[in-house]
């Protein structure tokens, strides 16, 4: 009986830990998604910029002039990086999702066992 309870508690803790990780992954994904959109916006603006336009990049407290081609390259690089990160996040999220389901199942069976034990104990007392 006690053994089962300990097992149940351990499984519950594991389940909760996975849940937390899952939430973290989701919010990280959202941040990345936002960054991707922002970079996409910058890219369209850079593409739309006329020949007489100039590009500045804020580095710390100063604005540094940058070549348009260089800026475009940088933004493209960032977009690539973020897209890769997003993919990695998606994989991680689906893995965590599967893990969560597994834990949920285990938890359910353990809970059933626990209840049965409890009933048995109650019946033997009565």
């Amino acid at each position: 009986m006690e053994d089962l309870q300990n097992k149940l508690q351990a499984e519950l803790d594991k389940f909760k830990a996975v849940g937390k990780e899952y939430h973290n992954a989701i919010s990280q994904r959202q941040v990345l998604d936002g960054q991707l959109h922002e970079n996409m916006g910058v890219k369209t603006e850079l593409d739309l910029l006329k020949a007489d336009g100039e590009v500045f990049k804020m580095i710390g407290p100063v604005l540094v002039k940058q070549e348009l081609t260089e800026a475009k390259q940088n933004v493209n690089k960032r977009i690539d990086y973020i897209t890769n990160e997003l993919k990695r996040m998606d994989d991680m999220i689906s893995n965590l999702d599967a893990e969560q389901d597994k834990h949920k199942e285990k938890l359910a069976t353990l809970q059933m066992q626990f209840q049965q034990e409890q009933m048995k104990a109650a019946a033997s007392k009565a």
Partner: peptide, 21 residues
């Protein structure tokens, strides 16, 4: 004018382009 387009990039553009933006 200088326009902040995000991620630390600022573009110097003509009035028309800025209004359009």
């Amino acid at each position: 004018v200088l326009v902040d387009v995000g991620t630390g990039y600022y573009l110097k553009m003509s009035m028309e382009s800025a209004k359009d933006y």
